[in-house]
C-alpha cells in the first residue's frame, strides 16, 4: 500500500470555503482518506475515538484556535502522536514559536497552491 493510500488526514477549519479548498487540494494530491471538522472541539472529540495520522488545521478559529487544538492533542495520550500542520494567513513569529514548543510538525502560509500543500505534507511524512 502506498503512503498516499495509507495516510489518513483530518482537515479542521471553521470556514466552509477554506475547508473545501484544503479538501480539494487533498483530492488533487491523491489522498482519499480525509475527514473534516468545523471546529477544534469536535475535531478533538472525533480524534479521541478515531485517530488519524495527520491533522491539517487552520489557525484562526473561534473558541479553540489551531494551536489550542494542538495543545489539547499533545496532552492526551491517545492523540499525542498525531502529526499537525498549521495553516495560517499570517506569518506571525510568536505563533510559529509556540507551535514549535508544542511539537507542531509543519506550517503553511495562506493562500497556498496544491504543490505547496503537497510539499508541506511531504516534509512531514516523506515522499507521497
Amino acid at each position: 500500500m502506498s503512503l498516499k493510500d495509507q495516510l489518513k488526514i483530518m482537515v479542521v477549519d471553521d470556514m466552509t470555503t477554506s475547508r473545501g479548498l484544503i479538501e480539494q487540494a487533498m483530492n488533487e494530491i491523491g489522498i482519499w482518506n480525509v475527514v473534516s471538522e468545523a471546529d477544534g472541539q469536535s475535531a478533538f472529540r472525533t480524534l479521541m475515538a478515531k485517530p488519524v495520522h495527520l491533522v491539517i488545521s487552520d489557525y484562526n478559529m473561534p473558541n479553540m484556535d489551531g494551536l489550542q487544538l494542538l495543545e489539547q492533542l499533545r496532552l492526551s495520550k491517545a492523540t499525542a502522536r498525531i502529526g499537525f500542520i498549521l495553516v495560517t494567513g499570517r506569518a506571525d513569529n510568536a505563533v510559529l514559536q509556540k507551535g514549535r514548543q508544542l511539537g507542531m510538525n509543519n506550517c503553511l502560509l495562506k493562500p497556498f497552491s496544491v504543490p505547496q500543500m503537497k510539499a508541506c505534507i511531504e516534509k512531514v511524512v516523506g515522499r507521497l
Partner: peptide
Amino acid sequence: EEDAGLDFQPLTLDILPL
C-alpha cells in the same frame, strides 16, 4: 516582516498503522 514567508523547521513523522 510578513512577506518574508514562514521560517519553520518541519518535524518529520513516521507513519505507523493507526
